[in-house]
Design a protein around this nucleic acid. Structure first.
Lengths: 235, 235
DNA sequence: AAATTAAGTGTCATAATAACAATTTATAAA
DNA sequence: TTTATAAATTGTTATTATGACACTTAATTT
């Protein structure tokens, strides 16, 4: 089915940049590339778009095939299209970044697949321009998370305020005043305090909170201001 | 040069959504499609990506070829990839939106090309999924302009505060208090008041302002708050 | 029982915001 | 020449949001 005569067709791929948070640090999910060139080198999860699927569907398929993950939060970022970015054959790639709760998918991941979590600070060299994609995804995440409450996607169902604050502090590589932080977070009305405490990480223990799912979905696009002076971090 | 065996290649296109502002209303630049199908129907400026160009370069080339415009502010938005979006042959399209000063390019446009400005409210039916692209670009513009000072791209070198306010009011389909608006705008330090007045639009005349270009480029990513309660407009 | 460690909480001064209306300027009309 | 008109320009105030700052509480460990 080639009806627009005289035009060049291109390979189109999707790559998935999957961020996780282990309670202490950001992590990145990587696999070892299964085919040449750069076979066995660490790489983002990627694959070619198939004839009858959209980019979004392709990204979900690739993610499922390579990691077993389904139904995760995916967001498209700017396409990479430098003619020589793939040395084998020109490929235009549309990257997606995703945020997932590491614990939730740990069993699934470790049993069936060979994807591995790396601390963002200790990630190995990646193939092609995947480093750039990770960098761009991180910038995008910083931008988006400064305005919208998406970081909850990285946390388990129950989490503590200190955990949430650490998450934000690690993303922006800074520290926040805990009194101001909790005031802002709680003022959104998105969090519901639980009776139970997390006793793993301190003697006193920290109360768990859950997301108010309904408010969360309603307010997903709402502007928040968890980050003081966002312009300091987003330039 | 097909080295990744067994994979399907796709046509990849770029479409340009060009916004302008005539001092009173938003406008959209359209052309009549020059080839079948839908020949002579109104359409965005689009074209297929060529073998040795990136998407960005392709978008600039298409824009130049079809309108004569060069070096305009272009920003990529999310790719459209539904398998049947182009009835002739599957095409994945990466749209770019642009903001230009209508006056600046009017001569160029009308002499050599057949692109035409339409009021956004009076635009004709567009081919394929171009309506969706325009809608998405408009949403993206509203989002971006609420946070960053990009709307100046739509104005001539000299402009008045009432003009600027009208621009914002039309984009968000609302009205703002002019005292608060001018306070916010002027507090950015981006505007330099001129001695001259615009006497076209009122008896008293309104002072012209120019952008402080240096500050503008430095602060392009800076957060502004021209729009009160942005969450009202961006959901 | 005392020491330790992290969680949890409150105040205050300053800045930002939104709501609000009177004055000024230049032209047009009388 | 004076008056009317229309839009531009300008300031105040009450409220809210913000950021800076330090002590108290809870539970475990020694």
């Amino acid at each position: 089915m080639m009806k627009y005569a005289g035009q060049t067709r291109f390979l189109v791929a999707v790559d998935c940049i999957i961020f996780g948070f282990d309670g202490e640090n950001f992590k990145l999910l990587l696999i070892q590339r299964g085919f040449a060139p750069e076979k066995n080198k660490w790489s983002l999860m990627g694959g070619f778009v198939q004839p009858h699927e959209s980019l979004e569907v392709g990204a979900q398929r690739v993610l499922k095939q390579l990691t077993g993950l389904e139904g995760v939060y995916l967001e498209q970022i700017s396409a990479f299209s430098e003619p020589n970015r793939d040395p084998v054959e020109r490929t235009i790639v549309v990257p997606y970044f995703a945020l997932i709760d590491i614990q939730k998918y740990q069993a699934q991941l470790s049993s069936d697949y060979h994807a591995e979590w790396f601390l963002l600070s200790e990630k190995p060299q990646l193939i092609f321009d995947h480093e750039q994609m990770v960098e761009m995804a991180k910038m995008r995440l910083r931008y988006k998370a400064a305005l919208h409450p998406i970081l909850f996607e990285l946390l388990p169902e129950k989490f503590t305020l200190p955990q949430l604050q650490t998450l934000y502090e690690k993303l922006y590589d800074t520290t926040f005043d805990k009194r101001n932080f909790s005031r802002k977070v709680l003022s959104t009305g998105l969090l519901v305090k639980q009776d139970e405490k997390d006793k793993e990480n301190s003697r006193k223990g920290a109360f768990y909170f859950k997301l108010d799912k309904e408010k969360y979905y309603d307010n997903f696009q709402a502007f928040l201001k968890f980050i003081p002076n966002p312009e300091k971090f987003l330039i």
